[in-house]
């Protein structure tokens, strides 16, 4: 069992622009409207970098920057996670490669790397802290959550008490319709810490034995959202926290998310501070 404290949540999702809006949607699903993510996303990138950054980078950064001040985030270990990376950019490059002279754009090429959002984030925040970008296909969210908590708990980490985890996936271009089904954009950022000060919840994570059913949501519309993007599988975790306001500090709930054959069990203990 590995533990970490969840300090803050950033989220850019259909009809949701912040943790506050996510909490409302999770508390009152009847009022939630699943409308596509805004075409225009704000990021803390300088204007020229914002223009060069692709949609998937803007999506990731829009969630990441909600989780704290630049000063707080600058010292965080960083983990970026995506199932598919930037297929939109891949599609543009591959179309160019099918043309005469193969005119690949240099900016598109550097945007095509899986760690593009991580690179842009480090530029935006001027953070020189270690940053990794991982994938484990549709288990990317849980694999990266495990990676984040492992980094926080490992003895090699003497300096950093906080870790920023950013999970995002785009809607792939139409060319991929037969290959991958993600109907909505979704990005979620969590700051995780060894420190319980002002934490939203304590998380206790373990790899399962495959015996537990995967967690779902009881609301149809939220369940539709959960299934719309590989990163949206985080929603049952956020749901426990959003709906814990009338619970005591003794309350806990276990969520099981997909992680290979075994599943990942997450015991969530929401915390109160007053």
């Amino acid at each position: 069992m590995l533990t970490a404290y969840l300090k803050s949540v950033g989220i850019t999702a259909p009809g949701i622009k912040s943790w506050s809006e996510a909490r409302t949607a999770l508390q009152c699903p009847d009022q939630y409207i699943l409308s596509p993510v805004d075409k225009k996303l704000e990021t803390l990138l300088p204007a020229n970098e914002h223009r060069r950054a692709t949609r998937v980078t803007q999506l990731a950064l829009s969630a990441a920057q909600q989780t704290g001040t630049q000063e707080e985030l600058n010292q965080c270990l960083q983990i970026f996670s995506s199932c598919n990376g930037d297929l939109t950019t891949f599609n543009q490059i591959s179309l160019a490669l099918a043309m005469d002279g193969r005119p690949v754009s240099p900016t598109r090429f550097h945007n095509s790397v899986h760690n593009a959002p991580s690179g842009y984030w480090s530029i935006a925040t001027q953070s020189q802290t270690a940053s990794t970008s991982i994938t484990a296909y549709t288990d990317s969210l849980t694999a990266s959550l495990l990676e984040a908590i492992v980094q926080l708990n490992a003895s090699d980490n003497k300096q950093h008490r906080d870790c920023l985890l950013v999970c995002y996936d785009e809607v792939p271009p139409q060319a991929f319709d037969s290959q991958f089904n993600a109907t909505e954009e979704f990005a979620c950022a969590l700051t995780l810490s060894q420190n319980s000060n002002n934490a939203l919840a304590k998380l206790e994570i373990s790899v399962g034995d495959g015996s537990k059913a995967l967690s779902t949501l009881s609301s149809d519309i939220l369940e539709q959202l959960r299934l719309s993007n590989p990163q949206a599988i985080i929603l049952p975790v956020l749901n426990v926290i959003a709906n814990s306001e009338d619970k005591t500090n003794l309350y806990s709930e276990t969520i099981t998310l997909p992680y290979f054959e075994q599943g990942m069990n997450i015991i969530i203990r929401p915390l109160k501070h007053d």
């Binding site: 899986h114 970008s133 991982i134 484990a136 694999a143 290979f260 054959e261």
Partner: peptide, 17 residues
């Protein structure tokens, strides 16, 4: 194999990390 698995894709530092 059934253990933990992940791919690190940070361009040319990937397989050092």
């Amino acid at each position: 194999l059934k253990g933990p698995a992940q791919v690190v894709s940070t361009a040319c530092s990937s397989s050092a990390k």
